[in-house]
């Protein structure tokens, strides 16, 4: 990638940083995965680039902050988008706070995450890969301070597995995926998740009841899997 520096290799893509038309940008290259069949690889890559762009545009309409989209190149399998230089992941934020046992602050944060998710689902955007690595905290004043929730915005990233036009089933699974990611990653998960659901219901008034009952169903289905070994 010309003029760009590699930042990290995520699960799906290599992330480069640099500038695009003078703005700090990242380039997300969904490089060829040699382990999978070329037909499957091309299909999935194309689908995910499309899904990511579509979701970003829809989030904009719904008032949810995401990186701004600059350029999409199917040929290079790359998306150029806004780079948040002053940001940390929710994963890091939660770990920092839970080591200093700021429980009230954590609950407040969980509520905010829930509200954002409620907005997503109310606009029929299903994220598909909700983990605490895919939620960023961005400082509003471009400084590297993440102490207080008042000075940060929540930004959703990584919409490669997202889809729109979705059913209660998909939204229920979305919540299930998040719960599982929280439980496996954070010791404070059991305090966080109920708060997230509270926030979720606040911003997703019409459909959240149905989604939550479906979520319970999905949960029961998941647990059953320990039956046969």
């Amino acid at each position: 990638m010309e003029g760009m520096e590699i930042l990290k290799q995520g699960a799906e893509a290599r992330i480069y940083t640099g500038t695009y038309l003078g703005k700090p940008s990242i380039a997300k290259e969904r490089f060829v995965k040699t382990y999978r069949h070329p037909i499957l690889d091309n299909f999935l890559t194309k689908e995910r680039i499309k899904a990511e762009c579509r979701a970003i545009v829809r989030c904009k309409a719904a008032g949810i902050r995401t990186p701004a989209l600059y350029l999409v190149d199917f040929h290079k399998r790359t998306i150029w988008m806004e780079h948040f230089e002053h940001s940390i992941t929710a994963k890091e934020f939660i770990e920092n706070l839970s080591s200093s046992s700021a429980l009230e602050e954590l609950k407040q944060f969980a509520l905010e995450v829930g509200k954002t998710l409620g907005c997503l689902h109310a606009s029929n955007i299903v994220h598909g890969d909700l983990t605490t690595s895919n939620i960023l905290l961005v400082n509003k004043n471009s400084t590297k301070s993440f102490k207080s929730l008042r000075e940060v915005d929540l930004v959703m990233i990584d919409f490669g597995l997202s889809h729109t036009e979705s059913s209660t089933e998909d939204k229920g699974v979305d919540l299930y995926v998040l719960e599982r990611a929280l439980l496996s990653t954070h010791r404070v998960a059991e305090t966080l998740f109920p708060q997230i659901l509270v926030g979720y219901q606040q911003t997703y008034k019409k459909g959240s009841k149905e989604v939550l009952s479906r979520f319970e169903e999905v949960r029961a289905r998941g647990r059953k899997r320990t039956m046969v070994g």
């Binding site: 499957l40 598909g128 890969d129 597995l161 995926v177 998941g222």
Partner: peptide
Amino acid sequence: PYCVKGMD
């Protein structure tokens, strides 16, 4: 069909 939901 190809069905991945997060890490599930």
